[in-house]
């Protein structure tokens, strides 16, 4: 399988454009960022079902909920900070409480947004979406998975939050593999440490596993592309075998994947857990790669965390 450098949002746009032809009930709504979120690809083929709300995210969620209550399956997109933070309470009351078919799909999540700086780097979005009842949260690992996940959530009942990055990063899944909501996938087997990632960090987890293998350490890498509901069976099964765990996410360690895994482990197999993520801090402007390094989100950070986790085993 050849890895390619691809941006998830481009594949989100492709999936929407394909869905436009397959399903009449799909409506897409955006808040002045269609060119960036790539919902413009849908607009190009189905302009009559594309809704521009302008820079008004709260209204966007209300409109989306009204459309969904009238039988539409609505994809509402903008950048992660605005898609979740600006309209959190609208999502809670208008979309999530009545379990409406509102699919909030955010691009530009994580610190790899880069030069735009902290105002545009969503590092808390998973946490705040995870706290809302009825909400499903999906974070695809690459562009191919973003395409398949878009198709999958279109056919999945109820509100969904899907999170994607801005920049290009390596593909690690097979193109065309069906996405199953709620199911983790083991990307690499190992017996010494479980490494669970989401989003573009899965690629870094695999890279870290390669480095660890050279030192004789077997890391089992799990792609947790659905964060809620968490595939706790996959977590418990793997950690029961390896005895320790590392999580890696381009998100705060508070409330995201690391928290979800911690909650799962402390109620099942108590095992050492190390979380790789931003550590209760805002980001800043810079090149994505420099930021990933400065904020401890690289493969070598995952390697160090794995070693710490292993050393804490009893």
């Amino acid at each position: 399988m050849n890895s390619r450098l691809l941006a998830q949002r481009n594949y989100y746009g492709k999936a929407l454009a394909d869905l436009a032809g397959e399903r009449e009930d799909i409506v897409v709504i955006d808040a002045d960022l269609a060119g960036s979120t790539k919902t413009s690809d849908f607009k190009a083929v189905a302009p009559e079902r594309f809704v521009e709300v302008g820079i008004a995210e709260q209204n966007m969620i209300g409109i989306a909920s009204g459309l969904a209550a009238s039988g539409k399956v609505v994809f509402a997109s903008t950048f992660g900070v605005f898609a979740t933070g600006r309209c959190w309470e609208q999502i809670r009351l208008a979309a999530a409480y009545p379990k409406l078919n509102v699919k909030i799909v955010a691009t530009h999540c994580g610190i790899s947004v880069g030069e735009d700086g902290a105002s545009h780097q969503a590092l808390e979005d998973i946490a705040i979406m995870r706290a809302i009842p009825n909400m499903t949260i999906v974070s695809p690992a690459d562009a191919y998975e973003a395409y398949e996940a878009t198709k999958a959530i279109a056919g999945y009942p109820g509100p969904v939050y899907m999170r994607m990055g801005r920049s290009e990063f390596p593909t690690i899944t097979e193109e065309g593999r069906k996405f199953e909501i709620g199911k983790a996938s083991v990307m690499r087997s190992g017996k010494d440490v479980t490494v669970i990632g989401c989003g573009q960090m899965v690629s870094s987890c695999l890279e870290a596993a390669g480095i660890l293998a050279e030192e004789g350490i077997g890391a089992e890498v799990i792609n947790m592309s659905t964060i809620k509901p968490l595939d706790s069976g996959a977590v418990i099964g793997s950690v029961s075998k390896t005895g320790c765990c590392v999580t890696a996410e381009e998100h705060s360690i508070i409330g995201g994947l690391g928290s979800a895994v911690a909650e799962c482990l402390c109620e099942s197999v108590c095992a050492p857990l190390e979380r790789v993520g931003t550590r209760d801090t805002f980001g800043e402007s810079g090149k994505p790669s420099d930021l990933m390094e400065k904020y401890g989100l690289t493969a070598s950070d995952i390697v160090s965390a794995a070693k710490r986790a292993i050393s804490r085993k009893k």
Partner: peptide
């Protein structure tokens, strides 16, 4: 009951979404 409300300021957006769906269809 058509929509969940109670947090003020949201109903007109919901109603606009419902009206828009009617217009689309």
């Amino acid at each position: 009951v058509e929509m969940s409300t109670g947090s003020l300021g949201q109903g007109l957006s919901m109603a606009a979404g419902i009206a828009l769906a009617g217009k689309m269809d």
